[in-house]
Design a protein around this nucleic acid. Structure first.
Length: 150
DNA sequence: GCCAACGTTGGC
DNA sequence: GCCAACGTTGGC
């Protein structure tokens, strides 16, 4: 089993939005980065643990614990001209972009970046690295345990 | 294949 | 709004 940190802008899909969805599960639309896509396609498995992270907001940080709830499939927004995630170059017979379903298990008190940075054992957590922009990053088991206590 | 220009991310 | 960092694009 692998572990992940997945960023979402709360103005787009917050952890509360996800909890309000049927089964507390949301399709993780809008990933338009090949490395992040490849994680979903090649490495994620149903049941993998997810740190649900709010980015581009007043209080960035980890706000919930979730799990991967499906294998990857084509992200329908890439074919929707009305979507901000529309990709003219992607064809239904060869979808370029994928998504997975993410199921929120429970919220946590926001674990902010300063809180994360204060812990030396988390120094290598990818989301804390300078210049990190990847919306999906793998989380080492030791980091997962240090953050979740499980 | 190089690399400059450009667009995006995301914290602050 | 600023700006550093990074990915992508496209000319050559």
């Amino acid at each position: 089993m692998n572990h992940w940190l997945m960023k979402s802008e709360p103005g787009d899909c917050s952890v509360d939005d996800a909890l309000a969805a049927p089964n507390s599960t949301v399709p993780w639309v809008g990933v338009r980065n090949y490395q992040a896509r490849n994680f979903m396609r090649d490495t994620m498995r149903v049941g993998d643990g997810v740190l649900f992270y709010h980015s581009s907001c007043a209080l960035p940080g980890i706000v919930g614990i979730a799990r991967i709830a499906s294998t990857s499939r084509a992200d329908p927004t890439q074919f929707d001209p009305a979507s901000p995630y529309y990709d003219l170059a992607s064809k239904p017979e060869a979808p370029r972009w994928l998504l997975v379903d993410v199921q929120v298990l429970h919220k946590v008190e926001t674990i902010t970046l300063p809180m994360l940075r204060a812990r030396p054992e988390l120094a290598d957590l990818l989301v804390l690295k300078k210049g990190n922009r990847l919306s999906i990053t793998p989380v080492a088991l030791t980091h997962w345990q240090a953050i979740t206590g499980v």
